[in-house]
Amino acid sequence: MSKEKDNQGLVWEVFVQKKPGQPFVHCGNVHAHDSEMALQNARDLYTRRNEGNALWVVPAKYIVASSPEDIGAFFEPANDKIYRHPTFYNVPEGITHM
């Protein structure tokens, strides 16, 4: 049994695009031994209920992540700089995906 458990392949992160032009959104991960199987597994797990029309799979080991200790230096300086947010513009009617 333990041999089988260890033999599930790499972890791949899965990103689904709902419609053309929209961003690919992370939705979870799958196990697979290579890219084609990763794509098929992602399709079977995450797109069988009309969730999207395009898929990305990326080996999880290639994702570089910030760590919790970085929160202070990375993100907190943005908190008190309201002028960095484009909240002083009027958005024209008919603009979507803002």
Binding site: E4, Q8, G9, H31, A32, Q40, N41, D44, L45
Partner: peptide
């Protein structure tokens, strides 16, 4: 099934 992903695939 031998792995969860394959269980889903065969089920689909």
């Amino acid at each position: 099934a031998p792995m969860m992903e394959e269980e889903l695939a065969l089920g689909n």
